[in-house]
């Protein structure tokens, strides 16, 4: 644990109380969900910790064909829920079970993952690919697509607002997530999440997102356009693989080089497309 300056601990009773406590500390407090990130952080400015895990935000509900997931729902609770396994062709079951290891999934919450939004993480890539929306309560109640939020200074927002719920829209079709890491426990060197909806022999809609580039997961609209209206199959996946290799924006970090990421991004997208198409058929 690196967060060593804690002087006071509060269990918020509801989002309003969490917000008024945040305001009272004037920047010297933080919301605590799973704590997996917060308590690892070396921030020296946090005196007050406000636990929001007991304010009724742990649930997974079916909502208009999609899912509504409370912000403090742990990854394990999502995996164990009745509604999640069937959603988007089983995407959540396969993607979340590749996140960290069981003890961390027992602690980490979806809201915490959304707010931390590590560039190497799988969850932001999945949320962006799915077109997830987040609802929050701050000075006012707000909502926005996660993809749009990530284009803004969202961390500042969540120092003054409580993320309440993540809404995953309905998709007629299937998604698949691919992660490549050095061991099954390690964080991603690169990840990709793709979804496809078929209309007979044609692809009706497509979603392609790549993350850990090393930047955070983003959609590749030009790859999606290249898929729509086309006949699914190995030839098309290979074509999109080459397209991704030629256009994806990647970089170097201490974990992997840009040249490797460029080649591998194409491979991961091809695999995710093939798997999504296969899941969509069953």
């Amino acid at each position: 644990m690196r967060l060593t300056g804690i002087r006071r601990f509060h269990f918020a009773r509801d989002a309003e109380e969490a917000l008024s406590l945040l305001a009272a500390y004037d920047g010297g407090a933080a919301l605590l969900a799973g704590g997996v990130d917060l308590l690892r952080s070396p921030r020296g400015d946090i005196e007050g910790v406000i636990d929001i895990t007991r304010i009724g935000l742990s649930y997974v509900r079916e909502s208009r064909g999609g899912l509504a997931i409370g912000a403090t729902t742990t990854l394990t609770e999502i995996l164990a829920s009745a509604a999640a396994p069937a959603y988007a062709g089983g995407l959540l079951a396969s993607a979340l079970s590749q996140v960290a290891a069981p003890p961390l999934r027992n602690m980490a919450t979806l809201g915490g993952a959304l707010v931390s939004a590590h560039p190497w993480a799988d969850i932001p890539t999945v949320l962006v690919a799915l077109g997830a929306e987040v609802r929050w309560q701050g000075e006012k109640v707000g909502k926005a697509p996660v993809e749009e939020l990530y284009g803004t200074a969202f961390r500042g927002l969540f120092r003054r607002a409580v993320a309440l719920e993540v809404v995953l829209p309905p998709w007629e079709g299937a998604f698949a997530h691919e992660k490549i890491s050095r061991t099954r426990y390690d964080i991603a060197l690169l990840n990709a999440c793709c979804g496809l909806g078929l209309d007979g022999e044609e692809i009706r809609w497509a979603r392609v997102a790549v993350g850990a580039r090393p930047n955070r997961g983003e959609r590749l609209p030009w790859a999606e356009e290249a898929l729509i209206g086309r006949k699914p199959g190995g030839e098309l996946w290979n074509e999109v693989q080459r397209l991704v290799e030629s256009r994806v924006e990647v970089g170097d970090d201490r974990r992997a080089g840009a040249a490797w990421r460029r080649r591998t991004a194409g491979v991961l997208v091809r695999r995710a497309l093939a798997r999504a198409a296969q899941r969509g058929e069953t």
Partner: peptide, 28 residues
């Protein structure tokens, strides 16, 4: 001490968690 190794694992309400990434009041 940072959640990576698992040596500090305990069960909380039957679920394995990292005790190095929790503060005591969380187990109230």
């Amino acid at each position: 001490g940072t959640g990576d190794c698992g040596a500090c694992t305990v069960l909380l309400d039957g679920r394995a968690v990292r005790s190095c990434l929790m503060v005591a009041p969380q187990v109230q």
